[in-house]
């Protein structure tokens, strides 16, 4: 019965072809250093899952953001766990992405034919940092308020357009409800969607060219 169902589905979806193309691929022998990319992906998924759960209670308004997070941390069952994982996952993700990049640089895996994979990887790093920056403001506490003030101030140093950029980031001249809600929207939709698209492209290129082998003497 089960095999019949599988056959029916396979005929329509091409499960077997997918299995062959995606999973049953030959690869050069890898080491534990090769797991950093998938570890980054795992952390991104964890961030997505815990982030969605945080949204269930979090309120992006200066009046309630802080209190809603206090509520998550102290009143909701396992709220401390979900927020804790999201908080530490963000830190760990930046770290793992960075180490992943170092590994790729060290083994020169960005060379022919994987140049584009590297370029997309750098964009992934930037998006991750952007997520860290925007997420930092959301708890609306002293630390986030002043860190964001400084960050937007730094963007203001851009010659000529600086003031304008700061105003765009803050949604006005000062940090306000507008800043919080635009950082929120960027953090929960714009950047995660960007990241997901870039990850798809990154993975496609990896499957297309295969994981790189460790360089030998003659390389």
């Amino acid at each position: 019965m089960a095999s019949k169902v599988f056959e029916w589905l396979d005929e329509r979806l091409g499960l077997n072809d997918m299995y062959k193309a995606l999973l049953d691929r030959p690869e050069p022998e890898g080491t534990w250093w090769n797991t950093l990319g998938s570890a980054s992906l795992f952390l991104f998924i964890m961030q997505g899952v815990t982030g969605i759960f945080l949204l269930m209670y979090y309120t992006p308004s200066p009046d309630h953001a802080y209190d809603s997070i206090q509520y998550i941390m102290n009143e909701v069952a396992f709220g401390w766990l979900i927020r804790g994982i999201h908080h530490w996952g963000a830190n760990l993700m930046v770290f793992i992405v960075f180490v992943h990049m170092l590994r790729v640089f060290t083994t020169a895996s960005y060379k022919y034919p994987r140049e584009l994979t590297w370029v997309i990887g750098v964009l992934l790093l930037l998006t991750t940092l952007g997520l860290g920056l925007t997420g930092y403001l959301l708890p609306w506490n002293q630390r986030s308020y002043f860190a964001t003030t400084v960050a937007t101030e730094i963007a203001g140093l851009v010659p000529f357009a600086g003031d304008f950029i700061t105003r765009v980031m803050r949604g006005g001249t000062d940090l306000s409800a507008l800043t919080l809600s635009r950082f929120f929207a960027t953090h929960v939709w714009v950047l995660p969607a960007t990241l997901a698209l870039l990850i798809t492209a990154h993975l496609y290129l990896i499957i297309r060219h295969g994981e790189s082998e460790y360089p030998s003497e003659e390389d």
Binding site: D24, R25, P26, E27, E29, N34, T35, A39, F42, G210
Partner: peptide, 20 residues
């Protein structure tokens, strides 16, 4: 290199899962 390599599933994924 592929000749004396491994399979993505389950050899690589196994390591990935352990690290994750």
């Amino acid at each position: 290199a592929l000749q004396h390599g491994e399979k993505f599933w389950p050899d690589s994924i196994y390591k990935d899962v352990l690290v994750s």
